[in-house]
Computed example of a mutant assay.
Amino acid sequence: MASRTFGHVTVTTPDLDEPGLYLSVVETLDSPRDAVQDFTYGDVDLRSLALTGIRLITGRVSDVRAKQVEFEALNLHGVEITSSDLGSVRWSGSKLTRVHVRDCRIMGAALDGMVLDDVLFEKCRFDYAGFRKVRAAGPVAFVGCALTEVTFTDCDLSDAVFSDCGLELTEFGAGRYRDTDLRGNDLSQIRGVANLAKIRIDSGQQADLAQALVDELALTLGDD
């Protein structure tokens, strides 16, 4: 099995090039059997992509461009998603296990009630997305991602790692962030500083958090 280490977590990622594994090309991710396994799917332009109650097991999704995306109870295991544009995605009630999402645009997404276990988001754009009741049940890492004006609400991101991410006006709402690793990021423009108890930072980020708190509270600094 392949793995990547970021900070204090090691994420197990899909190994889709292992000897003896053959992925069949499929024309759709929907299935009357409610499962698609050992597959490769991609290089398509779609007006909409809607999947409900489907399990995707051991496969690769690449170069998918869809204007509207609706995923409900879509569970992924051992899946790689690359170079895709999932416009206005609404993704709810799902579990992702051993999933690698790379070089994707997931801007303005609504991600609700998702469970993440061994999930790596790498070089993805999540700008203006909303994460609600998303739980890290195992290793989770955001690496080199753009998270401008993203909101996290009622999430459990304990032990998750954010590395080299853009966190401009990213809002960490009420939730659990114990040992969430924010080292290696500019934190000066984040929101919800008071909710980030017990996170991990390095010594150089103390000034960032102080600046973020001053801006959030609209404090006026002066000598008179």
Rank of each mutant, 00 (worst) to 15 (best):
S48C: 07
P19N: 03
H77G: 00
L169S: 07
G20D: 07
F39S: 11
A110S: 12
F39N: 09
F172A: 09
L74H: 00
L46Y: 00
V11L: 10
N185C: 05
D85G: 02
V69Y: 01
L23D: 01
V89G: 03
K133Y: 04
V99Q: 09
G42R: 03
A35K: 07
M107Q: 12
T220Q: 12
R191M: 10
M107H: 00
G184P: 06
D85V: 11
V9H: 04
T5H: 01
A207G: 08
I81L: 15
S158E: 07
L182N: 07
L111V: 10
A129G: 04
S3T: 12
A137F: 01
D154V: 04
G78L: 11
A136N: 00
S24Q: 15
K123W: 09
G130F: 11
R125V: 08
L46P: 00
H100P: 02
K133D: 03
L187G: 02
T12Q: 12
D127L: 03
V89Y: 03
K133R: 13
T153F: 14
S188D: 03
R4D: 15
S92A: 15
R33H: 14
R98T: 07
A141G: 03
T97N: 13
C165S: 06
P139N: 05
R47Q: 11
L74Y: 02
R125F: 13
L221K: 01
L23M: 03
D186Y: 01
I81E: 06
D45S: 09
D186F: 10
W91A: 08
F131Y: 14
Q68F: 14
C155K: 05
V69K: 10
Y177P: 02
F6S: 06
G144T: 04
A210K: 15
